[in-house]
Design a protein around this nucleic acid. Sequence first.
DNA 1: AAATAAATATGATTTTCGTCATTTTTTAGC
DNA 2: GCTAAAAAATGACGAAAATCATATTTATTT
Lengths: 238, 238
Amino acid sequence: MISFDSMKSMLDESYKHVACSSCKSRGHGLFNGISGAELDTLEAQRACNFYKKTQSLFVEGSTPRGVYCVNHGKVKVFKRGEEGKEQIIHIAKAGDLIGFRAMFSGELYKVAAESLEDSNICFIAKEDFLNMIEFNPALRNGIFKELSKELSDRADFITNMAQKSVRERLAFSLLILMDIYGEDPINLSREDLANFVGTATETLIRLLKEFKEDGCLEIEVRKLRVIDKTKLISLAGN
Amino acid sequence: MISFDSMKSMLDESYKHVACSSCKSRGHGLFNGISGAELDTLEAQRACNFYKKTQSLFVEGSTPRGVYCVNHGKVKVFKRGEEGKEQIIHIAKAGDLIGFRAMFSGELYKVAAESLEDSNICFIAKEDFLNMIEFNPALRNGIFKELSKELSDRADFITNMAQKSVRERLAFSLLILMDIYGEDPINLSREDLANFVGTATETLIRLLKEFKEDGCLEIEVRKLRVIDKTKLISLAGN
DNA sequence: AAATAAATATGATTTTCGTCATTTTTTAGC
DNA sequence: GCTAAAAAATGACGAAAATCATATTTATTT
């Protein structure tokens, strides 16, 4: 049985057919430099789909066929380690593009993606996307920039993983998640959060309790709200 | 005082002026799709320099002015954590390009690079490089592909860091280093190796001893030689 | 070649964190 | 609203790996 909210979203046509012109990806994202005619083309080519919570966009090892543009919602991008434990590499929010790495590598997906909440996500086929890039230098440079930024972020991620304690990593992760969730409370299962921080779920739960007792966090069942960012920054040791 | 080898390298002009046409970066690297006229331009624009061991190419926080193409030698790309401990993100070998991420991001270097051995490294100024990319779709796609590959590698790296034991990570790292060093023995200080694996130097030394006793590794002072790759693969748990 | 410095190695100890077992709470299905 | 299942929480324990102290070997300098 699907939830009332899901139902509402599925029925609400505005969720399914969102104009590219009003998509957040044009505000801060890659499609920033998209002009009138190209915008129309994009609008015509992309397919807009609704994903309810925990639905899969693509799995590790499958063939990339295009890129995904998050119009509304959140998506986790993750890898599975040997024992099947997920490592969340990235959490995409509205306006973010997913899966364009695989457009260029010519390889199968090395990661998987799954919605973390009810989401509205558009799909742009590989050839259409590559075509746009071919003839739009601004977009091309945007992609270069985005790939570069992600590379840099991952270098940080690696360094944190290698050198910081789980406590520091959690503090750091919460700061990142604050940016992603904005005004909303951070809405992740304990397991997902643990898989983002890179620790055991039990350890994560204990640390969250500590942070709460330290007065920098409010905890509801699935919702975390940072109430002392300054303290969190000092806990992250940066 | 510089070593005899360094001296020899510095005096040997063939080290300083290597033809792009015979550079390894054309064999397996980005400049694969470079044709006659462009190759000549590249040849004319690039400056070839000799770096002795432990010399810095660029430091964290400085302004990127171009890309570095390793003609001969090895270069470590690393980040410093809070307490100044290095985390090696990548080790570049002959034919690899370094620092092109920063070409596109418009930001300062977020990492540093330093030669691990006496090396011959060419420099291509930012504007020249961007110019080449602008007018060479094949090169452009090569860059996309390379950036994508590195992103994927780093996702693996993060997952390994988060989920594997130090022993497994060391085994995995040695396998990567085998590819980088090819026929040559792996030539890294214990500290550098520890900073690549992401562990304390003491822990690394103890594990190397174990691997040696297990018969998969031959250890000279600074040189490691894998003698049982199969065993190493099983130790890496992959 | 001796002296100093740097890198490597080893031992003892402590801390962090993962694992396993179990309980409590929350969510979803009927 | 009750039941089953899933998620969250807590406790006890042990293993892995960091830290600190110190010794030994190798490199560098004079």
